[in-house]
Amino acid sequence: MKEFVFNSPGEACSLLLGQILGELLEPGDIVALRGELAAGKTLLTRGIAWGLGIPKEVRVTSPTFTLINEYWGRLPLFHLDLYRLSDPEELQSLPWQECLFGNGVAVIEWPERLGGLLPAKRWDIEFSILGEENRQMVIRGLGEHNLARMAKWVETLTEIQTHRVCLP
């Protein structure tokens, strides 16, 4: 299976999904989050941070203003938000390569701003707004290695979707 469709009825469930994803992530993983404003991208990242062992007391806030936020857990987490980038040349002023090609996990909001620079080996998560709190997240593994891991992910995620209390 190449993708997994996760339907979240609300924030608590999206956080849980993020946390599970954070537990599955490996050094060097790149996660591209695609979705409009208020789709829940930063919220999912907060869950991923928890899954990476970043303490819950640490505020995982929007990186729109700072462009890149760093957190230190089981693995380093680089939370990038390229929303404010308008000119690809502006990328040169950011240490984005250090974030993407290091030994941590990079979560990127507005990855389309990277254009062709976005690595082919990555995870894509596409958000759709279904209702006030309902969100659909389609998770895709890209690249050979991630495709192979996807099977394992699907197993874990299916279990959550079926058994966890946060789902109706």
Partner: peptide, 9 residues
């Protein structure tokens, strides 16, 4: 020109 972004500017 207002520097939209950061270090290089």
């Amino acid at each position: 020109v207002v520097p939209e972004l950061a270090s290089r500017k």
